[in-house]
């Protein structure tokens, strides 16, 4: 077993990559993938902490994060499909209807 610090550093890098991607990309689908990257970084940190502390709570938290991620993807993709049907080729910049 290698030290949990390695996993934390990798998790930091993965999370930041996802965050930058979320800020930079304008395709809503790719933005969703970046959210998945960030969730995976958190999962990695959860498992690393759980292993280090000898507590299964870390792995159980990852289990729930997985379920929430699945629900989030289903709802998010439904929203994207609904938007794209009304306006094909929409990017995140075009969706400014709520601005009033």
């Amino acid at each position: 077993m290698i030290g949990y610090e390695f996993y934390l550093v990798l998790s930091v890098l993965l999370f930041s990559t996802g965050a930058v991607g979320l800020l930079v990309r304008r395709n809503p689908l790719v933005m969703f993938m970046c959210v998945e990257l960030m969730l995976n970084a958190v999962n990695l940190a959860f498992v690393a902490f759980g292993t280090e502390l000898g507590d299964l709570g870390g792995q159980l938290s990852v289990f729930f994060v997985l379920v929430v991620a699945a629900a989030e993807v289903v709802v998010g993709l439904a929203i994207i499909v609904a938007i794209m049907r009304r306006r094909p080729g929409a990017t995140a910049d075009d969706l400014s209807v709520l601005r009033g």
Partner: peptide, 13 residues
């Protein structure tokens, strides 16, 4: 949560 997600997806699309 999963039930809500399924119903929401069906309603939205």
């Amino acid at each position: 949560l999963l039930t809500i997600a399924v119903v929401g997806a069906v309603v939205m699309v």
